[in-house]
Write a protein that binds this DNA or RNA. Structure first.
Lengths: 155, 155
DNA sequence: ACCCATATTGCAACAAGTTGCAAGTGCAAT
DNA sequence: ATTGCACTTGCAACTTGTTGCAATATGGGT
C-alpha cells in the first residue's frame, strides 16, 4: 500500500473541507463521493464526464456512472465545479479555479483556449446592457476557427 | 439596420433545389432524404434531432435515426442548416434563415432568444481582434439568467 | 451503542447520438 | 435499357447521460 502523504496539495477548490460543506447542507459523505473528490482534487483543469468515470474506476473499479453524474451535480450545486458543453455537445467539467472563464474551441484543429473575464467582457457587458441578461461565463463555449486555421493563413 | 420586423414566411432555404445542389456535389437524391427535406421545408426555426426524427416518422414510419443524422450532416455541409447545442448539450438544428445568429438561453425560465449579428458583434469583433479567432455565430449558445429572472427584479 | 428519517446507491431501462460494415441503390455514361 | 461505381441505407453495437425505484447506509438524536 502506498502511503498517500501530501501529494503536492494545490490551492484550488477547498477539497479538504468538502465533507463539512456537504454536512452543512444536510448532504452526506459516502465512500463513492470520497472517491470522486479524491479524483477531482488531483484533476487540473477540464475533464469530461466519461473521463472522470474512468479515473474513478482506477481508484474504485466498482464505480457506477449514475452515481458519479449525480455527485457531480451535487458538487456543482456547492459551487465547487462547473460544467459546459464542448463543441460536440459533450459535457465538460471544470474544477473551479480562481476565476470563472469560458472556452474558445477551434472546429478545425480542435484546440481549446480559455477566455478570461476581461476578454469576455465584450459579450457579458453587451448582453447585460441590451437585454439585462446575466451571462454565465463559466458555461460559455464559443466555437469557430482560430487564427492558425483561418483560410487566409492556411492557403 | 435594426428593422427586421417581418420575419415570417420569408425566402428561407432553397428547398426546391436541394436535389440540384446535392447532384452538383456528387451526392444523391433518395427517398429518405426526400422525406427529411419535406419535413425541413415545413419547419420554422429550431428543432432537435429527436424532434426531426419524430416528424419524419410521421411521413415515413420506417425512418431510421442514423440515416436522419447523417443526412442532417450532409445538409449542414451544403449550408442549408446549422446546429448548435442547447443548454443541456442536446443538438438543436436551425433551418438556415436569412442570417446566421446565435442563441441566448435562460437557465431559470428556459426561454431562448436569438442573438442577431449586430448584437453579437461585441464577441465576434473582440475575439477577432484579440486572437484572430473567427467566431461561428450560428453555433453560439450563451447561457445565463434573463432580466425577468434576475434576483433583483424577482425578489 | 441504537434508532430512525431520509439522503444515496445500484441497477436496469431509456434517450440521444455515433460508428463500422455489408447490402442496396441512384444516376451518369454507354 | 444496362452497367458500374461509390454514395447511401439499415442494422446492430456502443457511448454518454438521465431517470425511477427499491434497498442501503449516513449521521443527528437519545
Amino acid at each position: 500500500m502506498s502511503s498517500n502523504s501530501s501529494y503536492g496539495a494545490a490551492p484550488r477548490a477547498d477539497w479538504p473541507n468538502v465533507r463539512q460543506q456537504l454536512r452543512a447542507h444536510g448532504l452526506r459523505w459516502t465512500p463513492q463521493r470520497r472517491t470522486l473528490i479524491e479524483v477531482l482534487a488531483r484533476t487540473d483543469g477540464h475533464v469530461t464526464g466519461a473521463g472522470l468515470i474512468e479515473r474513478c474506476r482506477a481508484v474504485d473499479p466498482a464505480t457506477i456512472p449514475s452515481t458519479v453524474y449525480r455527485t457531480l451535480d451535487v458538487l456543482e450545486g456547492l459551487g465547487l465545479l462547473s460544467h459546459s458543453h464542448g463543441a460536440d455537445g459533450r459535457e465538460e467539467f471544470h474544477v473551479q479555479p480562481l476565476a470563472a472563464h469560458g472556452h474558445l474551441h477551434c472546429d478545425s484543429c480542435g484546440t481549446t483556449w480559455e477566455i478570461m473575464a476581461d476578454e469576455a467582457a465584450a459579450v457579458v457587458d453587451s448582453m447585460q446592457r441590451s437585454r439585462g441578461f446575466a451571462v454565465d461565463l463559466s458555461h460559455l463555449s464559443v466555437a469557430g476557427r482560430c487564427a492558425g486555421c483561418s483560410p487566409e493563413l492556411a492557403g
